[in-house]
Amino acid sequence: MTPTGHPPLIEVHGLAKRFAVERGLIERLAGRPRRQAAALDGVSLRLEAGETLAIVGESGCGKSTLARCLVRLHSADEGSIAYLGHDVGLMRGEELRDYRRHVQMIFQDPYSSLNPRMTVGQTLSEAIVVNGLRPRAEAPARVAELLDLVNLPPDAATRYPREFSGGQRQRIGIARALALEPSCIIADEILSALDVSVQAQIINLLISLQKRLGLSMIFVSHDLRVVRFLSHRVAVMYLGRVVEEGETEAVFSAPAHPYTRALLAAAPEVGLSRGRHDSAMTGELPSPMNLPPGCVFHPRCPLATGLCRTEVPWLLGTETGRSVACHLAPGRAPR
């Protein structure tokens, strides 16, 4: 509960998701146990209305799985997602459809996320009519409105997705999500397939839409520059866990978790020709099927101590509104 007493728009608590790894026939006959890869491991987050929460991390950190859990494309194994205090996991039928109307998703790949055999108009009006937002007769007018909203020409309605560039397709994907008049948008790596100059156009579009429609947003990305620019708060994920969470500017200017620090140090910046240096982080990501004990980051952490190798550091809040999952974070009592 927030201080005002309203439940947050979305509250995630202790979310865990594991994927079963296919066993070969021989492995099954040999009686090898079913192996599981942990994609999410006890993730807790909250999103307030009108806010943009960024989720950053490298591939395999579970950020896309989290996004898909939020729109119920995956069901979680443990933990809960609450929308305005209602448990999303328990929703069925009409209630679930209602939730999906309010929480929409924009996808990473502007090419595969649109049905290639439907015109843009068909795609948009289907979303409108099937969800009963407008009668069929009024759908074309609404389609024109939506296209205008994302700065596409009105004649786009009669054309097929293949006739558009990546950036324009992403606008169509945004329009499709907006067709349902959602209160929250989950954007899953929506810029990663786009060119820099096009990215900027889409970012501007998102910002203006958010202002005009009062949208809340969960912005999943690996691009630290964009995240810093766009989000109010940021959660940094590593191997299925949130390792740091807080106000974006505060996290970027004074990262508290060694992983966040390494991530920021590794990001190339214009005008920062550092020449040769030691890489901020050595080693590779451990296998999610065989996570290291203790802190999952300890094998790559320059500061790891004995404690880090044995005990999981919980994500604890500090007085500055920051949460960090590190034994060595300032303010933690050394044991």
Binding site: R68, R100, R101, F107, L114, V130, L180
Partner: peptide, 13 residues
């Protein structure tokens, strides 16, 4: 597997 199928699901179809 493609995202447009996931999108259709998210759109409540």
């Amino acid at each position: 597997q493609l995202d447009y199928a996931a999108a259709a699901q998210v759109l409540g179809y």
